[in-house]
Design a protein around this nucleic acid. Sequence first.
DNA 1: ATACAAATATGTACTAAAAACACATTAATT
DNA 2: AATTAATGTGTTTTTAGTACATATTTGTAT
Lengths: 237, 237
Amino acid sequence: MSEKIIKALKNAAIEKKNRQDYFNIAVSVDCVIFGYDNDELYVLLMQSDLEEFQGLNSLLGDLVKPNEDLTEASFRILWERTGLQNVYLEQVHTFGKINRHPSGRVITTAYFSLIDMQHQQLNIAEHQLNWYPVRKVKRLAFDHLEILQLCLHQLQQKVMERPVVFHLLPPLFSLRELQSVFEAILGIELDRRNFRKKIAIKDWIIDTNTLEKEVNHRPGKLYKLKAGLVNNFRPYQ
Amino acid sequence: MSEKIIKALKNAAIEKKNRQDYFNIAVSVDCVIFGYDNDELYVLLMQSDLEEFQGLNSLLGDLVKPNEDLTEASFRILWERTGLQNVYLEQVHTFGKINRHPSGRVITTAYFSLIDMQHQQLNIAEHQLNWYPVRKVKRLAFDHLEILQLCLHQLQQKVMERPVVFHLLPPLFSLRELQSVFEAILGIELDRRNFRKKIAIKDWIIDTNTLEKEVNHRPGKLYKLKAGLVNNFRPYQ
DNA sequence: ATACAAATATGTACTAAAAACACATTAATT
DNA sequence: AATTAATGTGTTTTTAGTACATATTTGTAT
């Protein structure tokens, strides 16, 4: 982007008519909010009440405000719709097809977010949000299914390389739970012994010398994430 | 994105005043165009004639038109500025900081592109474009240095996994040239024997049973990319 | 024509990582 | 005390990656 834009913008500031030609694409963000519970990966969706998409669910999204960073907009959405702060967010892709939105030209930047749905208390009811198992989601409004699939794919790519899955778990977790999260995300079964070896090498977690409670079998050791490994947080306010 | 946007858009269509609140972010694309020549990775840059960035170079970019896909916009820029069609393009990231552009709110989606700068004939002169060795680029206008670095990083991540480097080479190339491209992108030296083994396993290239010409030493065999491996092309018109 | 220089071409031994696989241990339940 | 259902750990095998040396081909200089 360069002098061509500069001229366009300066002209736009002067000639109101021209302005319409350059400022007529709306910008939104959409959040794919992943959660994990009981060996299953979930995504948080809302009912679309748009005629065109009657009965379909959609991702949580909103237009970006003029004085708002893209990332800020995503944090705001999470805050407004779920009451959550300090959430892990990662940009994935920007979708820009001309007719992707029935009501006008809207480009959207997709983020995915990982939250501990078991222990974070969400204000789900008041915004008609619900958790759905990712593998059962077959249709969504807009191009949101494509967005969901790409975000899942990106998560799958990343999950063994970077310590991100811990955002889906409570602060203390067993190796069994950790393995289940990986299996839910990757959609495959893993060998327990090899998995533990791999995790040990990564040096992501610390043995807390405490044990699971309230399980009806031999309790597993509880681990926590090593400090200083995660920095992609940002509170909304 | 959902009913909230719908309402906003429908209101916007009716109330002109409101419209300004939603359609006041400009959208641009910026292209990081990589080329390769003589053991060096280059990037195509233009002079910024914006006062704020006097004497600095910038990437090639432009505002996205209301009736234009993001990808189309990138292909258009490449076509308009270089005369090239059938170029490899890949979206990398969208940059949305509020003050990233001195003349107004502009979010930009970055793409990188790989072209064969030795054999494609570019209309470089007429738009004051020049090739610069990537490793020597220390400053750019706007946030373009950050964009360049992220695109390079993404290219580095991708290069061993997917057959993309071939876009930087002519249709026939020697293993020596191929290795040099990898070395230029990754910024490290590779062992010739191990490199060849790795490439052989990937099954990306075919021996054409022809030899290099006009080299003042023993000529190497020429190879070509296997058919059907590349599908991310799109002509602009 | 011969020797030399500069590149291509290729194979093997060693090391590290990944995959396959089995048995002992703990705590709750009966 | 025996049973059940999980946790916890180690070894072998296979695969992939790294380090490394010599023969071959062509052009050039003598």
